[in-house]
Design a protein around this nucleic acid. Structure first.
Length: 215
DNA sequence: CATGGGATTGACT
DNA sequence: GTCAATCCCATGC
């Protein structure tokens, strides 16, 4: 199995899969910490540039309704994938957070493609790199992540999340209100890599100032 | 068992 | 800017 150029590039950008303890923290902390990490599936991978936090205590979170078959993943152990179908069409990818028994997850909303761009273009049916993973439904389509990945252990795959490379500068992270929700829309629980061109949408101008804190 | 509402996207006015 | 596509699931009869 020969190492491709993109695999070599990926190794420089990231390292090992994140431990369970990384996810077993307040969900807004994890949402911010995931910026600059890598999401990978098969030959495709991308730098996480945009996330949102969801917690059982607020009504925008699926876990708000309590423990059901659907939300059981959210209440399960941290470090697993929660993948669900949105608007009947798109699969949305989340990383389950907080201790087992607490319903919370980080939605990954956008990636900067790092590897497998040709396959991403084929799956997406578009050529512009900026359009490959600039939205939560787009990135799952580009990486080939489907509902079968629900409950997948992100340390083992097939869908994996890798930590930032050693020595990499801490990314500047901006915060703002979450997108596309009607409930608890005021919480500044959306996080983005400051200045990234790969976001699903730009952040409000006040984003960097608000980045200082949330939760 | 029927119904309604989405953590979206892309096409179209 | 508006709007339909399309399916999963929570809720209520």
């Amino acid at each position: 199995m020969a190492a491709t150029r993109s695999e070599a590039r990926l190794r420089r950008r990231s390292q090992a899969a994140l431990p369970r303890s990384f996810y077993e923290r307040p969900v807004t902390v994890v949402a911010r910490a995931l910026i600059g990490c890598v999401l990978a599936h098969g030959d495709c991978a991308g730098l996480i540039v945009e996330t949102e936090a969801y917690h059982q205590s607020e009504p925008a979170c699926h876990a708000y309704v309590g423990y059901t078959e659907r939300t059981s993943t959210l209440f399960g152990p941290p470090g697993l994938a929660y993948v669900y179908r949105s608007y009947g069409i798109h699969a949305l990818f989340n990383a389950v957070c907080e201790p087992e028994g607490v319903g919370a997850a980080v939605l990954v909303r956008a990636l900067q493609p790092l590897a497998g761009q040709a396959l991403m273009r084929a799956r997406r049916g578009v050529s512009a790199e900026l359009a490959l993973c600039s939205g939560p439904g787009k990135l799952t389509q580009a990486l080939g992540i489907e509902l079968a990945a629900n409950r997948c252990d992100l340390r083992e795959g097939p869908v994996r999340v890798l930590g930032r490379a050693d020595g990499a500068d801490s990314p500047r992270v901006a915060a703002g209100p979450r997108i596309g929700i009607t409930k608890a829309a005021e919480l500044p629980w959306r996080f983005a890599l400051a200045g990234s061109r790969y976001l699903s949408r730009p952040l409000p101008a006040s984003g960097l100032a608000r980045a200082r804190h949330a939760r």
